[in-house]
C-alpha cells in the first residue's frame, strides 16, 4: 500500500497530489465530504510550500505521507525550503466588507477551518514538517 509520495515543487503536481490523497482517503474509509476537506487542506499546504517555502516552482522536494491513528486520519507534509513561522501570518477577517478583506493568509486559514489539528515544526535537518489531522469516525 502506497503511503508516501515525493514530488518536485511544481504546480503541475497538485492534481497528482490530490489523486494520492483521494486514494489514501479511500483506503482509510473516509467519506466523500471528509476527503474533499482533506484534499483542499493539502492542496493549500502544498501551494504555500511552492509559493513561499521555495519562492516559486523548482525541483526541490515535497514529501507527503499519511497514516491512521484510531479515528484520526493524519497527513504529514515535509519540505526543505524557508522555515515557516505560522505565527507571522495574520488571521484574515472575512466578517468585514469585501473591500476590507485582506488578500494574504487565506490558505492557512482554510487549512485550519477544514482540519481538526494543524501543527508546524521546523528542524534544521528535517526541514518544515506540517502535520494535519482529521477526525473521521468510521
Amino acid at each position: 500500500m502506497e503511503r508516501s509520495l515525493t514530488v518536485p515543487a511544481r504546480f503541475t503536481e497538485l492534481a497528482h497530489i490530490a489523486e494520492f490523497i483521494a486514494q489514501a482517503g479511500r483506503e482509510a474509509g473516509l467519506d466523500e465530504r471528509t476527503l474533499f476537506h482533506v484534499q483542499m487542506a493539502v492542496d493549500e499546504a502544498c501551494s504555500n510550500i511552492i509559493e513561499h517555502a521555495y519562492g516559486g516552482e523548482s525541483d526541490e522536494r515535497i514529501r507527503l505521507s499519511w497514516h491512521c491513528e484510531g479515528e484520526k486520519f493524519v497527513v504529514t507534509i515535509q519540505d526543505w525550503g524557508e522555515p515557516f513561522d505560522p505565527s507571522a501570518v495574520p488571521v484574515p477577517r472575512l466578517d468585514v466588507p469585501l473591500e476590507e478583506v485582506p488578500v494574504g493568509g487565506l490558505g492557512l486559514y482554510i487549512m485550519r477551518k477544514l482540519m481538526d489539528e494543524v501543527t508546524f515544526h521546523f528542524d534544521e535537518v528535517e526541514g518544515n514538517i506540517l502535520r494535519m489531522v482529521k477526525r473521521c469516525p468510521r
Binding site: L98, E99, L106, I110
Partner: peptide, 15 residues
C-alpha cells in the same frame, strides 16, 4: 474544486 487562489481572483474581480 476551487482553491484559495481562485477565491482571491473572484474577490479581486468583484472589488
Amino acid at each position: 474544486y476551487i482553491s484559495s487562489g481562485g477565491l482571491r481572483a473572484l474577490m479581486a474581480a468583484r472589488r
